[in-house]
């Protein structure tokens, strides 16, 4: 299982993204980070910490569960219902610049669901997207504003991001599948 990023590389990549966020928005005023469950959440928290180190300002952070907004809900003829987890957005998103954070950008459907969910919470001034890995194969017109690494993949591969907070270690790997499994 080839390792795309080790812990060190992940850390430096996130620091770089934090700097890009500050640069593009000319500071962190009006910003809020919203991590998409599950692994977008610890990544968002790390970005918040980096932003604090750079600017000495606390950027509010929330967690978004998009399960109930998925476009493939209720379509599974067999298979378990995806488990719903808590959404915690303890801030008003009106007139804020929301920075959505996810681990992997693939078809774009997760981000589409996240956009729909966010709009139900209010009217943000703008929404920007951070992803650690963009693996291509978009099925919707969605683009990330900040990308950790672009990784061209085939449909028989998966990109797996592991984070200390959930998986016990930091790394990004590529897994190969047999064609039937996809």
């Amino acid at each position: 299982m080839p390792i795309l990023m080790d812990a060190d590389r992940m850390s430096r990549t996130l620091t770089r993204i934090a700097h890009e966020i500050v640069e593009r928005n000319r500071g962190v005023e009006q910003l809020a980070l919203v991590g998409i469950r599950s692994r977008g959440v610890p990544i968002a928290k790390r970005l918040a910490r980096s932003l604090f180190e750079i600017t000495n300002e606390q950027v509010p952070t929330g967690a978004l569960d998009i399960t109930l907004y998925r476009d493939d809900l209720m379509r599974h003829a067999v298979g378990p219902q995806p488990l719903v987890r808590r959404t915690e957005i303890p801030l008003s998103i009106d007139d804020r610049i929301i920075v959505l954070v996810d681990d992997v950008l693939y078809t774009g459907r997760t981000v589409r669901a996240a956009l729909d969910a966010l709009i139900d919470f209010g009217r943000p001034k703008a929404i920007q997207l951070v992803v650690l890995v963009d693996r291509g194969h978009r099925e919707l017109p969605i683009k990330a504003d900040y990308v950790g690494k672009n990784v061209p993949t085939s449909l028989w591969e998966s990109v797996r991001v592991r984070v200390q907070e959930i998986d016990g270690r930091d790394e990004v790997v590529i897994e190969k599948h047999e064609p039937e499994q996809v």
Partner: peptide, 10 residues
């Protein structure tokens, strides 16, 4: 407790 008390799940 959301402003829009609705999700599209069903």
């Amino acid at each position: 407790y959301r402003p829009v008390k609705k999700v599209p799940a069903l």
